[in-house]
Nucleic acid binder design. Structure first.
Lengths: 208, 208
DNA sequence: GTCTATAGTTTGATAGAC
DNA sequence: GTCTATCAAACTATAGAC
């Protein structure tokens, strides 16, 4: 963000821009290390010393780039949702309602089961006392809006139907992580669950 | 609680029995306090000092009753599943398949959404480095067996069908806690989800 | 069995030299 | 911006008096 604001400075001042980029680069490196540590030891067990060590810094140096440990969690939260926002943005919505539902189920399941740390952080409740800032919460809101649009596009607009969808797909993810991490026991059920849901909300059968 | 245990002492060996019961009573009090602290500050944030304070002890005294903090978590884990085992044991299985499925969904949902700390502890992943002992894992196994039996009793025996059931019901619980704790947004969908599931596994329609 | 005292870690965060 | 040094505060767990 600093880089962006610096780049908006018009005349000369190459030095300032370069510093901005440098700063942004450091932030990125720190976040990348934080993700690595979180994946290795669990999100809740993340410590500043471990993050710093991986970056090749000392712990206090992190405070030149982040105000606190929570600020790092916050940035990670925003990054994770921004990632999923990109995935959702790349979705080419099929015109068939059932195909869309199936694609949504698969997309979310694949994303949520491919990185436990990211999943835990996105859905919180595992990091105590952490509330995302408004800024980093925005991507999450946009993702939900995008989902709403896509469903509305195939005629699914009842909020209760959307809630049922999130329950089904998050249940699959939940069980997969809890009882068969790394396996396919619930992954195998994704399409079936999708059809089950499609039937329940009365989507028309597909032509064969 | 102590009065009750005293009344159970019948003949001879009063001293030993009394000591044993007394010990058991202290354990119970400690666990009750641990639950209270967990509910108030979150399972992961539980500390021995807080538990001790609530019980009217100093932290080191807890070691006269539990070997470690993990031993307390372990006992809590066992208690929680034993509680649910009792609930499941009290279930009078309806002969109608759809009624049974609905009852199972409601029973689990109600239990899992009525106490976050208990729910988090039962399904782990929130307390780092904690693995339940074999002894305290047993009630969890028995509950699963009981569920299997009940489903088999109405003709549902395919393991994949059971996995689909756990996904559906745990998804409802998950969303309720994550997005509307204390509310009824997903509670309202329990019966609908149950019917959706019943349709998917091909249970016969009920006579009206 | 409960206490005081304390060991032994680990943590997030700050101060100030360079 | 990064470092060293350090603070202040938690935590689990142990030792030993009573």
């Amino acid at each position: 963000m600093c880089a962006v604001s610096h780049s908006l400075i018009v005349l000369g001042k190459t030095t300032v821009s370069w510093q901005g980029k440098r700063r942004e680069g450091a932030r990125r490196e720190i976040l990348a290390s934080a993700w690595a540590v979180a994946r290795e030891h669990g999100v809740a067990a993340l410590t500043l010393r471990q993050v710093a060590e991986r970056v090749g810094m000392r712990a206090p140096s992190l405070y030149s780039h982040f105000d606190s440990k929570h600020a790092i969690y916050d940035a990670m939260f925003g990054e994770a949702w921004a990632e999923f926002e990109q995935v959702m943005g790349a979705v080419v919505p099929p015109s068939s309602p059932r195909a869309l539902v199936r694609l949504m189920c698969r997309t979310f399941f694949e994303f949520a089961t491919s990185d436990l740390a990211r999943h835990q952080l996105m859905n919180i409740r595992t990091v105590p006392d952490f509330t995302p800032s408004e800024e980093n919460y925005r991507p999450a809101v946009r993702v939900y809006e995008r989902m709403t649009e896509l469903f509305a596009g195939v005629g699914v607009a009842d909020p209760a139907d959307l809630d049922l969808y999130t329950a089904v797909v998050s249940g699959l993810v939940d069980q997969q992580w809890a009882n068969d991490p790394g396996g396919t026991r619930w992954a195998r059920l994704v399409d079936r669950a999708s059809d089950m849901y499609a039937d329940a909300i009365g989507l028309p059968e597909e032509p064969t």
